[in-house]
Structure formats: structure tokens, C-alpha cells
């Protein structure tokens, strides 16, 4: 399959030539295919955010290349500029970057920069607002008056409104309560289903990753330590824990049950699959 993003031997060193010199990522080669939903995991300092910031040209690699739709994004100034519209990046705590006077103007900032016609802009703002559950009654409000969860969704809508081919979100649920997390995760899966876009999600939440991603990439000490389906990655629980990462709680329970001789299938990491497997095993028991 054609890849939408491809990196070749990507290496980035911070503060080169100073006592603080630090290799953030080293020799990272990876391919992302159109329509994939990939969760990128790793603890703080593992290089995952540095990696992500190369994908839309925000950081320049010290060596190696990034190709989006087969084009080297650092080949020319124009290519680097164009990639910003193709690959949309939602930063951590994006609500700190809301700055316009109204919600509508904030969401339309990206489309305005793309020099789209007014009607096209309007259509995109409304679509992005719908996908993120931002009601049109909020359009004329100041973004600063909204609740934390609403602000977060407005900020995400602003990037979605550019209709990027690839949407990258850096810890989009950080700091939200469980209901807020579930809402944002639903927004992301809805967006992907409706637009068929590729989505890369940086997250600490193994439960989110287990629930929605088809592929997991685990960063550790600046390189990709694991890359595979949730089944493949979560079957390596011990290694994940050694890297300072969590495993989904349901996967840990399944593992503990196996240790007690319960014959559970290998691919259990969500609460639903665990529930179904256990109920299935207990199935013939007469209810008490």
C-alpha cells in the first residue's frame, strides 16, 4: 500500500554542541498508510513529541527525511509550507492557543489562512464544529468563556476545519475528566469515520489506545521499540512496564487470570473483550 507519511532514518539532536546536547530521536524509519488510526505511546522524554513535530515540518531533522504523499517536505520552502495544511497538528493543551474574539473566528482561522472562499470556509467551520460537538449557539461567544472541555473541542475543530489528510493529536485528553475524555475520543473516531483521514494520536492512556487504535507505535529512548497491532504490543506487558508504561487494566486482569490457569484467548485488552471472554467461560453455570 502507498504510504501517506514515510520517514527515513530520522534523527534529531537538541542543543547540539552545548553541554545540554541530547539526541531526542535516532534513526527512526516508519510508514503510515492512508486511513490508519495509529496510537503513539511512550513516556515523557521518549521522543514521541519530537517525532510528531517533524511530520508537519515544525522541526527540521538533523539527518534523514520526511515524505508526505511521496514528497520530501523539506525539499523547498513551498513544500514545507504546504505540508502544514496536509498534516494538521493539535498540540498538548491546545486551548491555551485560542486567541480570537469568537468561537467561529477561532475555528475559521486555519481555513482563512488557506485563502478559501467565504462559503467554503463557512462550510468547513460548521462541519468541524458538528464533528466536535461544538453547538452553533456558541459561535458568537468568546472562547475564553467556555468550559475546559468545550475549549479543547473548539481548538481541535480549528485544526479539523483545514481538512488535513493527516490529523495528529498530542495527548488530546490530558487533564480532562472521564466524561470529557470519552467525548474527545468519540470526536476523533467520528472524524476519521466521516472523512477517512489518517489519524495519529499521542497518548499516555493505554485504555484509549486499546479502545480505538488499529496500530500502536511505542517510542523508547528515541527509537521505535514496538510497532504492531494492539494484540502484538499488549502481549509484551512485561517490557511495557519496564519502559515505565502502563498496560490496560483489562489486559493485566487477563494476565492474572491466565496465571491462575484460566484458559483465556490471547487478545484481551479492553473491558468489553475481557467481560465477554469471562462470561463465555462461566456461561454454563447456573445463576445463583
Amino acid at each position: 500500500m502507498e504510504s501517506v507519511i514515510r520517514t527515513e532514518n530520522l534523527t534529531h539532536v537538541y542543543s547540539r554542541g552545548t553541554p545540554f546536547e541530547k539526541t531526542a530521536i535516532h534513526d527512526v524509519s516508519v510508514e503510515i498508510h492512508p486511513g490508519e488510526l495509529v496510537a503513539v505511546i511512550g513516556h515523557t522524554g521518549s521522543g514521541k513529541s519530537t517525532f510528531m513535530q517533524h511530520l508537519n515540518g515544525l522541526l527540521r531533522p538533523d539527518s534523514g527525511s520526511v515524505y508526505v504523499d511521496g514528497e520530501d517536505i523539506f525539499a523547498s520552502k513551498e513544500a514545507t509550507r504546504d505540508v502544514r495544511f496536509k498534516v494538521g497538528l493539535v498540540f498538548q493543551y491546545p486551548e491555551y492557543q485560542l486567541f480570537e474574539e469568537t468561537v467561529y473566528r477561532d475555528i475559521s482561522f486555519g481555513p482563512r489562512n488557506m485563502k478559501l472562499s467565504e462559503s467554503e470556509r463557512d462550510e468547513r467551520v460548521r462541519e468541524a464544529a458538528r464533528l466536535t460537538g461544538v453547538g452553533e449557539e456558541l459561535f458568537e461567544r468568546s472562547p475564553l468563556e467556555l468550559s475546559g472541555g468545550q475549549k479543547r473541542r473548539v481548538a481541535i475543530a480549528g485544526v479539523m476545519a483545514m481538512r488535513p489528510r493527516v490529523l495528529i493529536l498530542d495527548e488530546p485528553t490530558a487533564g480532562l475528566d472521564p466524561a470529557g475524555c470519552a467525548g474527545v475520543i468519540r470526536n476523533i473516531t467520528d472524524y476519521r469515520e466521516e472523512t477517512g483521514s489518517t489519524v495519529l494520536l499521542v497518548t499516555h492512556s493505554m485504555d484509549d489506545a486499546a479502545k480505538i487504535a488499529g496500530r500502536l507505535i511505542v517510542f523508547h529512548e528515541g527509537t521505535i521499540a514496538m510497532d504492531g497491532t494492539p494484540d502484538e504490543v499488549f502481549s509484551r506487558q512485561r517490557e511495557l512496564v519496564e519502559m515505565g508504561l502502563d498496560v490496560p487494566q483489562s489486559a493485566a486482569i487477563a494476565d492474572a487470570l491466565r496465571a491462575r490457569g484460566v484458559a483465556l484467548p490471547a487478545s484481551i485488552y479492553t473491558s468489553r473483550s475481557l467481560r465477554e471472554a469471562v462470561l463465555d467461560l462461566a456461561g454454563g453455570v447456573a445463576p445463583c
Binding site: Q249, A252, I253, A256, L257, A259, R260, G261, V262, V278, L281, A282, V285
Partner: peptide, 12 residues
């Protein structure tokens, strides 16, 4: 996790 696994294994 261990208490839960004990309870479920006990049931089975």
C-alpha cells in the same frame, strides 16, 4: 488485579 483474578478464578 490480584483480588479480582482470585474472585473470578474462584467462581470458575
Amino acid at each position: 488485579v490480584d483480588e479480582c483474578a482470585d474472585a473470578v478464578a474462584g467462581l470458575l
